[in-house]
Amino acid sequence: MNATADKTAAELERKVSERLAGLPDVDASHIEPHAEGTKVILEGSVDTVFSARKAVLSAETVDGVHDVESHLTLTGSKDRPSAGH
């Protein structure tokens, strides 16, 4: 990668990290985004499959991201029924 591509990748990673940190009900402290061009790879762990889906969907909404690949692992229960639903 050249310096411009490195800067662009770092900027995308920063934007995705900020977006993930703002998600309610998702502990993004164990998610690390890695940008390769316009593709972002999410690595790390989340507690539920819903958290993983929220993380992917959120990353897809960041300007400049055209594809998101999830390498997230689950640490807790996959499907917890939410109260009242």
Rank of each mutant, 00 (worst) to 15 (best):
A52E: 04
T75H: 06
A52Y: 02
A3R: 15
E69L: 05
S51G: 14
T73N: 14
A10C: 01
R19V: 06
E13N: 04
L12E: 08
V65S: 06
G22A: 14
H66C: 11
V40E: 01
A5V: 00
R19G: 03
T75F: 01
A10T: 09
N2Q: 06
T38L: 00
R80A: 11
V65L: 06
A35I: 03
D67F: 00
L74P: 05
D25L: 13
I41R: 15
S17I: 03
A9E: 13
T4L: 13
P24A: 12
E60Q: 09
A21L: 13
G84D: 02
H34D: 02
E13R: 04
T4S: 14
A28P: 07
H30K: 09
A3Q: 15
A28S: 15
A83R: 11
D79C: 09
I31Y: 08
D63N: 13
P81T: 05
A21Y: 10
K39G: 00
G84I: 03
I31P: 00
K78M: 09
M1E: 10
H30M: 01
P33G: 02
L74E: 05
D79H: 14
E32G: 07
H66S: 12
E18C: 00
L20C: 01
A9V: 07
E11I: 07
E32C: 10
G76Y: 00
A10W: 06
V40H: 03
D79R: 13
T75Q: 11
E13S: 03
P33C: 05
K39I: 01
M1D: 08
S51L: 06
P33V: 03
E18N: 11
V62W: 00
H85V: 11
V46D: 08
L42N: 05
A52G: 08
A10M: 07
R80T: 12
T75K: 12
G76A: 08
V56F: 02
E43V: 10
D67R: 14
E18G: 13
E60M: 09
L20D: 03
E32S: 14
D79K: 11
P81Q: 08
S70H: 04
T38N: 08
L42A: 00
V26W: 03
V65H: 10
A10D: 11
A3S: 12
T48V: 04
K54A: 15
R53A: 09
G44S: 11
I41S: 10
G37S: 07
G44P: 13
S17Y: 01
S82E: 15
E13V: 04
E36Y: 14
A52V: 02
E11T: 14
G44H: 10
T75E: 15
H30F: 02
V26H: 05
S45H: 09
D79E: 12
D67G: 00
E43H: 14
G76Q: 03
S29R: 14
T61D: 14
T8W: 05
L74A: 02
T61N: 12
V62H: 07
D63R: 14
R14A: 10
H71Q: 14
T8S: 12
H85R: 15
R53K: 11
S17F: 05
S70Y: 04
N2W: 01
N2K: 08
L57P: 00
E36P: 00
E36K: 13
H34M: 10
G64F: 04
E13P: 04
V65I: 06
K54I: 08
T75S: 15
L23P: 01
R80D: 10
T48I: 07
H30R: 10
R53W: 08
